[in-house]
Amino acid sequence: MGRKVFICSLAVMFCVIAVMVAVEAKAAYPDKTIEFVVHSPAGGGSDLFSRAIGSILEKEGIVKQKIQVVNRDGGSGTTSLNYMFDKAGDAHVVMQFTTGPLSALLRGSSKLKMEDITFLTLMCMDPNLAFTRVESPYNDMKSVIEYAKKNPDKVSVAIGTVAGSEHISAHRVAKASGTQLNMVGFGGGGAASVAILGGHVDLGFGNVNEQMGQIEAKTIKPLGVMSPQRIPAMPNVLTMKEQGINAVYVQPRGFWAPKNFPDYALKFWEDAFFKLSKTKAYQDLLKTSYAVDSFMKHEETKTFVNDYIKVLKVDVDELGVYKKK
């Protein structure tokens, strides 16, 4: 008899402890190292952004756990999406998204689909611009387009990756102005820049952050910005719209989480990223990288990305990449 009572009380005690542990786990989320997944190899723009943000979150004490950046590069973003698919329900995995993973989603080659994603926040937008080397006769996009209209396919554009941000930008400009541009793929921003600096190609598109050093050194000159508004860092450069070309392109950066991400975790990260966006360190990071603060919470981000992808899909289809046989 005594033994039975003992076993019962032991069982009750275990249950209580288990519940307490569970409650505590919820209260103290996150309770282990957070994975920040990045789709690009270590050292790319997205990777460095994630590492910088991770370090600010830790230093400011917003996230009490360690944040580890995990590079799941490969398959033009597909590998990272598959990784997120496998991590469904894991409350300690967060991934940065930008145009790259979004186009990988569009391509449909990953196991992860749009409905499997828990959107957390949108952080900022990277503005893009069109530029040429200083020796070039053009001073604005308008004159380039005028020339291109008379000489179809004569103006060459250096493109980084196929269907990447430069390609989409160039395509939108060509489409809006009704011109034909000779777009040549260089496989990466570095090689494309060299070809433009060396005068081998007429025109380039790119991230303001990456081109600022060259602009300040007066080796290249901006022809027009792709954002809807002018960029504070270069108030004299007109937008494409102001030059009569109805083309806009921005590159969003934000965070998402896998499917079945717990609500408490979603709430935690919304708050964490909101607090982050108010820190001086983060604002400085935006300033040095010329990104525009565009903080959005979960619901807004979802709507934004849905709209963004719809527009992107049109371009990608027109460019004819990713076509299924």
Binding site: G43, D47, G213, Q214, E216, A217, L285, T288
Partner: peptide, 14 residues
């Protein structure tokens, strides 16, 4: 990329 994080602008002007 790291230099840009430190707020330096790598380029001919360095």
């Amino acid at each position: 990329g790291a230099l840009m994080l430190y707020g330096l602008k790598p380029g001919p002007m360095m």
